[in-house]
């Protein structure tokens, strides 16, 4: 992926965000009423500013389109995927099985497949970490995290 492509993609995303802000702000009036600016005024102009600045960034990127600077190479991309995809898996697990189970599975898997630790070590660290968070948050500070079927069996929810 070239830097040009990345610049364009980012600028397009911020441009879209800017337009969304403008559209969203239009709903509440964007004028200057007797009691000062209306609720939409401030977001409206901020949205315009973001849109205009993003357009400017697109233009600047376009001017340098032939510079041919690499944004991420294949090796880096693989490294990011190796780190980022498990994160997404962790989030999916946390939403379905709850935080504690997800933490244990995620830690054990990453330690085993990326760190190359022995299974016994992986499982020990994973379980201890999960238990630590459970004790501190759930039992001690009474901060409820997302919980899943396992906690339900144990009587927590």
């Amino acid at each position: 992926m070239t830097r040009f492509a990345a610049e364009v993609a980012t600028a397009l995303v911020t441009l879209a965000l800017g337009l969304a802000i403008v559209v969203g702000a239009r709903e509440y009036g964007t004028g200057w009423a007797a009691g000062g600016p209306e609720p939409g005024t401030f977001p409206f102009y901020v949205g315009l500013l973001v849109t205009a600045a993003s357009a400017g960034n697109l233009l600047l990127a376009w001017r340098k389109r032939h510079a041919g600077i690499v944004f991420v190479n294949a090796v880096q991309l693989r490294r990011i995927a190796a780190f980022g995809l498990p994160i997404l898996g962790f989030v999916a697990l946390a939403l379905t099985l709850g935080f504690y189970v997800a933490t244990a599975i995620y830690l054990a898997a990453v330690m085993r497949f990326q760190g190359g630790f022995r299974w016994s070590a992986c499982i020990a660290v994973a379980l201890c970490t999960s238990a630590f968070f459970f004790l501190v948050l759930e039992v001690w500070f009474r901060v409820p995290l997302l919980k899943g079927p396992l906690e339900a069996i144990l009587g927590y929810r």
């Binding site: 911020t14 965000l17 800017g18 969304a20 802000i21 969203g24 702000a25 509440y28 209306e38 609720p39 939409g40 401030f42 977001p43 901020v46 949205g47 500013l49 973001v50 600045a53 993003s54 400017g56 960034n57 600047l60």
Partner: peptide, 29 residues
């Protein structure tokens, strides 16, 4: 320009939700 984009997005993110002054919900889509 990049500073402006970053700052503007921050301002917009801060505006999301209940507006104290008018009592209306903003930018919640």
């Amino acid at each position: 320009l990049k500073t402006l984009v970053s700052m503007g997005l921050g301002l917009a993110f801060a505006a999301v939700g209940m507006d104290t002054i008018s009592g209306s919900l903003r930018l919640t889509f």
